[in-house]
Design a protein around this nucleic acid. Structure first.
Length: 436
DNA sequence: AAGTGCATCAACCGCAAGTCA
DNA sequence: CTGACTTGCGGTTGATGCACT
């Protein structure tokens, strides 16, 4: 960000006024100038890295050793990798963060050429903002990975840091859709719903260009379930459709010639089918079964407020316009499809477990299930887009009194007891290094 | 075109651990 | 053993640029 560094800018000079005094010379603060960089690089070239207090004393720079070290390690080091994080790096960051938490230096150590500051900034801006809007922090497979490791560690009597990591704890403020768990059949065709889930996923914020390239080349698919409220969608997020990998495109291809099946899989009435295979953005005349929100595409008056902002991110546009003779359903249609109806809980800010991310929904289901073992099994059969089980929601709500996600003691059992079917975590077998 | 809000990132601050005399 | 000093880390802040209205 050298452009931001104004050489000899007044602000920089002013910044020195409050700094420490070095032998009567006030230490400078604020952005580094090119001249300062040159002096520092020259000094390190001659004397090597380290002994930063000596750098301060002997280089002639009016900078504290700390500042010199930071400047060197974050910007001047020759082995630094410039440019945006790659998809692989992002994946690695998520994976490592799921395991060790905010240990930026340790994470950076495993990403050659990247600095802790860079990773920290990345996490704080792109990832945590997703947490703010109610998305889960990690891709599902990484959650699973962390959990399975946790389980293993637990069996070995090792306490994983991921257990207590705050980012695995509940994220309040949004409602997780009700999910149904039953045994997952491997042969089951999961793509359509997964497609919706993927459309709702936004785990990373990656430049659309690299994303697009990765989407074409990746053989792994990541899906998840978004609980992001449409009105709070990240403005201009290019990553919104992250996860649109070739598996997904295959799924689209598989379904694009069978709109009826596709629509059924999505749970829409046939009136929607036509739109799925048309060039145009769909105008809904049907409604989502179980949803009380009518989907009327032509009326702003009938349009729910939460559906107002449905801009198609640039990436979606590009993907939607992918040169296919038989166009896929507009991705905007997926955008629309996954809009959940507004819920009275959504803005309540209540400390509900359902307000958290997917992970917590799983845990919540586990807890409530145990608490209500005698209740009917069908009680839990609410669909992702189905909010028609108010009784269940409310009763389970009451049983969940602990606002802290019980990962430490129940995650393993949760995963052993339940396999999501409605929330299809479509990760194919994770590759050897945990890729997704 | 101007104003406003948001995203990004460099840099600072405080604290803790390590080292050494 | 202790205190001073150094180094490293993580959290936070502030400046800047961009997008949106």
């Amino acid at each position: 960000m050298t452009s931001k560094v104004g050489v000899g800018s007044p602000s920089v000079e002013e910044a020195s006024s409050g700094g420490n005094i070095r032998g009567g010379v006030p230490l400078k603060k604020g952005p580094w100038t090119k001249e300062e960089d040159a002096v520092l690089m020259d000094y390190i070239r001659k004397h090597g890295e380290g002994n930063w207090s000596a750098v301060q004393k002997h280089s002639g720079l009016a900078r504290c050793g700390k500042s010199c070290r930071l400047r060197w390690s974050n910007h001047l080091r020759p082995d630094l990798k410039k440019g945006a994080l790659t998809l692989e790096e992002v994946r690695r960051i998520n994976e490592l963060h799921a395991k060790i938490g905010n240990k930026w230096a340790q994470i950076a150590a495993k990403l050659p050429g990247r600095t802790d500051n860079e990773i920290k900034n990345y996490w704080n801006t792109r990832i945590k903002k997703q947490q703010r809007v109610g998305l889960q922090m990690y891709p599902p497979d990484i959650c699973f990975q962390a959990f399975s490791e946790n389980k293993q560690n637990k069996e070995l009597g090792i306490f994983s840091s991921a257990n207590s990591h705050p980012d695995f704890l509940p994220i309040y403020g949004f409602e997780s859709p009700t999910v149904e768990f039953k045994k997952l059949e491997p042969s089951q065709q999961l793509y359509p719903r997964a497609l919706v889930n993927i459309a709702a996923s936004s785990f990373f914020d990656i430049p659309a260009t690299s994303l697009l390239a990765q989407a074409l080349s990746s053989s792994n698919t990541c899906s998840g379930l978004s609980t992001m409220h449409p009105s709070k969608r990240i403005r201009g997020s290019e990553s919104w459709f992250f996860g649109m990998t070739d598996d997904l495109f295959q799924a689209c291809h598989q379904y694009q010639n069978n709109g009826s099946l596709f629509a059924q899989s999505l749970g829409f009435s046939s009136s929607y089918t036509h739109n799925l295979t048309s060039d145009h953005h769909p105008s809904f005349s049907g409604e989502i079964p179980g949803s009380h929100a009518p989907l009327n595409g032509n009326s702003s008056s009938s349009e729910p407020k939460w559906a107002k902002k449905l801009e198609l991110p640039s990436l979606q546009i590009r993907m939607a316009n992918w040169g296919s003779p038989s166009p896929l359903p507009s991705l905007e249609s997926f955008d629309t499809l996954i809009q959940y109806p507004p819920n009275e809980h959504a803005d309540s800010g209540s400390l509900s477990p359902r307000n958290s991310g997917l992970l917590d929904a799983v845990l919540y289901e586990s807890q409530t299930s145990k608490a209500s073992k005698h209740s009917s099994h069908q009680e839990t059969s609410c669909d992702v887009v189905d909010d028609s089980c108010p009784d269940l929601q409310e009763t389970q709500w009451g049983t969940y009194s602990n606002p802290i996600s019980p990962l430490g003691h129940s995650a393993a059992s949760v995963l052993s007891e339940y396999t999501p079917t409605e929330v299809h975590w479509m990760s194919p077998p994770v590759n050897s290094d945990g890729g997704w």
